[in-house]
Design a protein around this nucleic acid. Structure first.
Lengths: 157, 157
DNA sequence: GACAATTACTTTGCAAACCTATGTATAAAA
DNA sequence: TTTTATACATAGGTTTGCAAAGTAATTGTC
């Protein structure tokens, strides 16, 4: 069946496009992907503990600690020990960090959204229905997806 | 517009599902993702030079060389210097390497394909059309996607 | 209240993945 | 033949990522 192959190739293309876009964004900002991702999560979801950040990104605490060391050295984040519970450490993006995100170029999702909004109602519905179908086939519908397609900059919050 | 957000979340979920699946597969095979990816490309597209392999994966030659060092140590690939042009080195998967791929569990794409084949003709067409639309919106349609959704094992060639 | 268990984070040590720059051999061009 | 280009390997570096062990603070439990 040709269509099955088409689906695989198309999905692969879409995933690949977001990968390439992420890499480009990474070069532009001068941050590595995990660093950029950390900044994004902090920006989208606000300050949080080191552990929470690790969970968001499916990494161990130790890994996130070292990423934060580097972000801190670049003055993009700061760590503040919680007063209520002194075991906890809250991570904040600095003004400089937020500025960096805002200065990044338009994202893939901006482009996608703009084009999508131009579509006819029926086509929008068709696309959403199709994606829902695929998502459930992959068992992806149970995944708590962060509200971003890629780690792009965006003041959508 | 709610639907725009839906699209982003759904795409994110789909991408995330393939990521998680890749990681699991990586654990099962005992290979890291780049190693697994290399094996897959060799399997799907046949023996090729180190440089060609690097291009396929958007990595530098140096990076691929070190990955091949490790695969070779595990006896999963071999390098053979070309006779026509002695600068070139062809990379072959070993029998052991191919066996490893075949022994891996059913992939995400198997599940996807099976479910897809069960669908009504109209739904299949709708999904393909939707994916094509998104792919072109992302500029992904110009990407030469390897014929696989993720780096899973498959004797579909 | 004391002491064990748990929690949150950091540190350490290590493997792997990346990169840039450089080296080495071969091939092609001048 | 000398130069230039190509294909790969090597050297040296940073970053990611983990497990294991360490430190400090909190929460039982008797």
């Amino acid at each position: 069946m040709q269509k099955s192959q088409d689906v695989l190739v198309l999905l692969r293309q879409i995933i690949r496009a977001t990968e390439l876009h992420d890499k480009q964004l990474s070069r532009v900002t001068g941050l590595t992907m995990p660093q950029l991702m950390s900044m994004q999560v902090l920006h989208m979801q606000g300050p949080m503990t080191v552990g929470a950040l690790a969970n968001q990104m499916n990494l161990t605490q130790a890994t996130v600690t070292s990423i934060l060391d580097r972000l801190e050295k670049k003055q993009l984040t700061t760590r503040v020990r919680s007063q209520e519970d002194k075991r906890k450490v809250l991570v904040y993006p600095t003004g400089e960090g937020l500025a960096l995100l805002k200065s990044a170029p338009a994202t893939l999702q901006d482009r996608l959204i703009n084009a999508f909004e131009e579509m006819q109602e029926w086509e929008q519905s068709m696309i959403v229905a199709s994606l829902e179908r695929i998502s459930s086939l992959l068992g992806a519908d149970s995944i708590d997806a962060a509200p971003m397609l890629d780690v792009g900059p965006l003041d959508r919050s």
